[in-house]
Amino acid sequence: MDIKSLQDRFQEKVDAEIKIEPRDWMPDDYRKTLIRQISQHAHSEIVGMLPEGNWITRAPSLRRKLGLLAKVQDEAGHGLYLYSACETLGVERDDLFQQLNSGKAKYSSIFNYPTVTWADIGTVGWLVDGAAIMNQVPLCRCSYGPYARAMVRVCKEESFHQRQGFEILLTLSKGTEDQKAMLQDAVNRWWWPALMMFGPNDADSPHTARSMNWKIKRFTNDELRQKFVDVCVAQAEILNVTLPDPDLKFNEETGHYDFGAIDWDEFWAVVKGNGPCNKQRLVARNKAHDEGAWVREAAIAFAEKKKQREMAVAS
């Protein structure tokens, strides 16, 4: 079959909502796009463990410590499901790690911001996980089977993360003046970076159309961002916090909230490595990987010895 008919048949399947599976024929660019997107997604989960992980040892109560540890552990799990999905496309996790550790691969820029108070942990849960869920739910219907299945699992588990974050904030909102101030300060710092998580405006997002055609993407960046803003406003009221945007107001005509302009210079600065924590994040990932090398090597050596011994006994 020639390439044109393969491509047509592929697109017909995608259009008919038939999932593409690992061994099916797929256009090279589809494969590359998926590898890039899924691995970036996996990296984000893994790097995302760092800003939250650094509060586990300082969590203010046993209940919070358990909840936060379970959450950060889940993120390791999500990274793992996603690397697994990526491996079905013929790349090895180790190679993806190399790309991350060398600074070549991208991950969600939000994790280059520091978590400086306990309220940040709640806010990350509420806004960052909230934005992530908004992004991820449509991915459960992605045309690539293994990615879609991994996302179903991720979304199922992720729902407790956002609730946990919101509960942390709700407790602060009913607490002392110090706690309320801590809450407002955290929301002030995380609101705009959370909006940036949906990526550039549609006009500046060249691959969106193709990804939507391939059903890797179901909504545009701006559509998802608008949805997110709309749901957050009511939630912010319950928390008794102000969202730091003087232009935020309901538009009777559109039925949505209008919001102010995003500082894309900041977004691109962070993407390009100049966020407050880009360097620390990479150092931490490299350290874990490098210091784990002898452990991984020893485990392989031991497994090999064990196999040899079992064979010797059998013969």
Binding site: R93, A299, A303
Partner: peptide, 12 residues
């Protein structure tokens, strides 16, 4: 089938 993972041997 639920997914995959890496391990040094079957027990692990």
């Amino acid at each position: 089938h639920v997914g995959s993972l890496h391990a040094a041997d079957a027990d692990m």
